[in-house]
């Protein structure tokens, strides 16, 4: 079916972005708490977004 691809892809993209941000943002937050710094959270979030968009490109963008 035609709709199946789009629906599946949209929910997966959302899931990837969310989990990328949660995981690497969580790592950054943990480093912040551990080392008493303030910038690891931002680095982690940006890294998570970047990795998640790369993953989306790998899965849905290259044809």
């Amino acid at each position: 079916m035609a709709m199946k691809d789009e629906g599946n892809a949209l929910w997966s993209i959302f899931g990837y972005l969310l989990s990328g941000m949660l995981f690497w943002g969580g790592v950054g937050y943990g480093l912040d708490q551990w080392l008493n710094q303030g910038y690891f959270l931002l680095i982690g979030l940006l890294l998570g977004i970047g990795a998640a968009i790369y993953l989306v490109w790998l899965r849905f963008g290259r044809e």
Partner: peptide, 20 residues
């Protein structure tokens, strides 16, 4: 690059999917 991507895939399949 797997260091960066594998945690995201695992988190998606085992945490984010049921949660969302």
């Amino acid at each position: 690059v797997y260091i960066l991507l594998t945690p995201i895939e695992l988190a998606t399949f085992f945490l984010v999917r049921p949660l969302t």
